[in-house]
């Protein structure tokens, strides 16, 4: 797309969309939203960047290797945090009994491991959505 208006608006809007996505992820345990919705917001901002500036420019920002690493890394963080409950003698995803800090109810740092799980889910969803779109766009037309 070679439109100066679309390019300028995209360049201004993408950081704000990503900032809102990070806000939704970090406030996932005390407000509506969470890892899935926030990760989808960040993924949408990268898809918008891909549509406007082309696949080549988007590959420099979010490469295949980074997609593989974050997609595997997100679920690995989730599994490691969940396994802490088993190691400490409880069930999978045991929260406060496993030694996670309780914090003050309603504050940003509260809820034990839930914010960490939200960050892991956010990374996973972001890389999944952007990898899905890149795989569909890059395929050779038949």
């Amino acid at each position: 797309m070679n439109d100066i208006i679309v390019k300028t608006v995209t360049r201004i809007m993408v950081p704000f969309i990503q900032m809102y996505g990070i806000f939704v992820i970090l406030n996932g345990h005390i407000s509506p939203g969470g890892g899935f919705a926030g990760g989808a917001l960040i993924g949408v901002s990268l898809i918008l960047y891909t549509l406007v500036f082309g696949v080549g420019a988007a590959e420099k920002k979010f490469s295949h290797r980074l997609g593989d690493l974050s997609e595997s890394g997100g679920i690995l963080i989730y599994l490691v945090i969940g396994s802490v409950g088993i190691v400490s003698g409880g069930y999978f995803l045991t929260n406060l009994d496993a030694g996670f800090l309780k914090g003050e109810a309603g504050a940003l740092l509260s809820g034990g491991m839930i914010p960490l799980l939200m960050v892991a889910i956010g990374i996973k969803v972001t890389s999944t959505i952007i990898t899905l779109f890149h795989a569909m766009i890059e395929e050779d037309p038949s």
């Binding site: 509506p32 989808a40 918008l48």
Partner: peptide, 15 residues
């Protein structure tokens, strides 16, 4: 509602 606005209106439309 938040998920619908992000997934339904954003990701699905762009896909």
């Amino acid at each position: 509602a938040l998920t619908e606005a992000a997934i339904g209106a954003g990701v699905t439309t762009l896909l």
